[in-house]
Amino acid sequence: MNKDTLLIAGKSYNSRLLIGTGKYKDFTETQAAVEASGAEIITIAIRRSNIGQNPNEPNLLDVLPPSKYTLLPNTAGCYSADDAVRTLRLARELLNGHSLVKLEVLGDPQSLYPNVVETLAAAKTLVADGFQVMVYTSDDPIIAKQLEDIGCVAIMPLASLIGSGMGILNPWNLQLIMDRVQVPVIVDAGVGTASDAAIAMELGCHGVLMNTAIAAAQEPVLMASAMKQAVEAGRMAFLAGRMPKKLYSASPSSPTSGLIN
């Protein structure tokens, strides 16, 4: 059997767990969690720099060097296609021409639900500009297919709202998306604990992206390790193929003959 790897935009990854770097206590904890998770693709955000008021501010890129990780700049906080495109052009300049990005265009600040109209518009512009776009979206299978047709390299539907930890609320829609698109489908947002990640992988998703589930755990580094194992276990269970569910089993696990009298 060939090695089971995650293939995104022509590059293979051993880990199917992608993690975010927000909400950690400090960079030391961020680094420890990233290590424990085994993740190779790490999301980062782009924000205004200090302009002289804090010259000794530590830099995330010193802790997570682009030589060691595939950094995935995001557009978190963007509510329009234009803002998302501007942010990712800055990210590409910051990361010396790196073109793999996470696009997300939000619809409202309470739910952080994606605005798919703006997302589609931004995806078109970015793909035309040479970006490799991994796209956060709703779990609408029609929009997912449209994003693939535009040229996105991974479709990343929410399992539930960003930061909610509510788990996988609509496994049927994830299935509809996987039935329709050829590029990797990566659950992004909503995972709360290890079993949620395992369920996503058992459904056949190609990967899971999470941030808060690890960063907001009581012990983030331990949870990062739990998520690593959950994603691996879920993937193996998917590949193994689960037994069918049945209400009664007419087939006991132990032999029916040779019973003592």
Binding site: G22, A45, I46, L90, L94
Partner: peptide, 10 residues
């Protein structure tokens, strides 16, 4: 001018 850096984010 906008001057940006990478920060932690999901």
């Amino acid at each position: 001018l906008e001057i940006v850096v990478a920060v932690g984010g999901g």
